[in-house]
Simulated assay, not measured.
Amino acid sequence: MKNGKKRSICYLVIIMITTMILIPFSVNSQVIDLMYPANKNENTAEISSFINSVDPSVYTFSDATILIQKKILYKNVESEIKNEMGKYATKFTSLNKYPHSNVHPERQIYLFLAVSDEKDSVSTKYAIFDAQTGRILTKGSNRQIKQ
């Protein structure tokens, strides 16, 4: 092979390697547009006025032992569960691990947690609504038989 061809191939390989190294950095440095951006300082409705617009069966039981209804920041969901639910906090593990990638941690949400502790079972329900749009972000329920 001639020196000119070797040099061209070297330049091509260097360009390809440089491109492969730089592409991930340029993608990671882009600003991600969140569906639910931070709104910590915006004025949103208090939970007492929001409750009237939601069907209670979405977030509670008719015989709820514990019912928590709060407006908080999304980043505080796990700490609120631990602080408010006491011995029932472990019953909400599916919610604790729920990663909603489109919600900024500084986003205001309405958090609903309910527990129905009966003789033979413990049932839980949760719902998270966006405080600005009123849209539901996640909800779920669980029932565990007592040992």
Rank of each mutant, 00 (worst) to 15 (best):
G4I: 15
K6L: 14
K6S: 05
K6G: 04
R7Q: 10
R7Y: 10
I9H: 00
Y11M: 13
Y11R: 12
I15H: 08
M16Q: 05
I17G: 04
T18Q: 08
T18A: 15
T19H: 06
I21V: 15
I21K: 06
I23S: 02
P24T: 09
P24S: 09
F25Y: 14
S26P: 00
V27F: 12
N28S: 11
Q30A: 12
Q30E: 13
V31P: 00
I32E: 13
L34I: 06
M35K: 11
A38R: 03
A38W: 04
N39Y: 05
N39F: 08
K40T: 10
K40R: 13
N41L: 12
E42G: 00
T44L: 04
A45R: 10
E46I: 05
E46C: 00
S48W: 01
S48R: 09
S49P: 03
S49T: 15
F50N: 02
I51S: 07
I51G: 02
N52P: 02
N52L: 11
S53M: 08
S53N: 12
D55L: 11
P56A: 09
P56T: 11
V58C: 03
V58M: 09
T60Y: 01
T60V: 05
F61L: 08
T65Q: 04
I66M: 07
I66G: 01
Q69F: 01
K70F: 01
K70W: 00
K71I: 04
L73R: 05
V77Y: 03
E78S: 15
E78H: 11
E78M: 10
S79H: 07
E80W: 09
I81P: 05
N83P: 02
M85R: 04
K87S: 15
K87I: 14
Y88S: 04
T90C: 07
T90D: 14
K91Q: 13
S94G: 10
L95H: 04
N96K: 15
K97S: 15
K97P: 05
P99V: 15
H100D: 08
S101P: 05
N102A: 13
V103S: 03
P105G: 12
R107P: 00
R107C: 01
Q108C: 03
I109S: 03
L111T: 04
L111A: 04
L111G: 01
F112N: 02
L113C: 09
V115H: 02
S116R: 11
S116D: 12
D117A: 11
D117P: 04
E118P: 02
E118S: 12
E118C: 07
V122R: 09
S123A: 15
Y126R: 06
A127H: 05
I128Y: 00
D130C: 01
D130Y: 01
A131K: 00
Q132R: 04
T133N: 00
R135K: 14
I136L: 10
T138W: 05
T138H: 03
N142Y: 13
N142T: 11
Q144Y: 07
K146P: 10
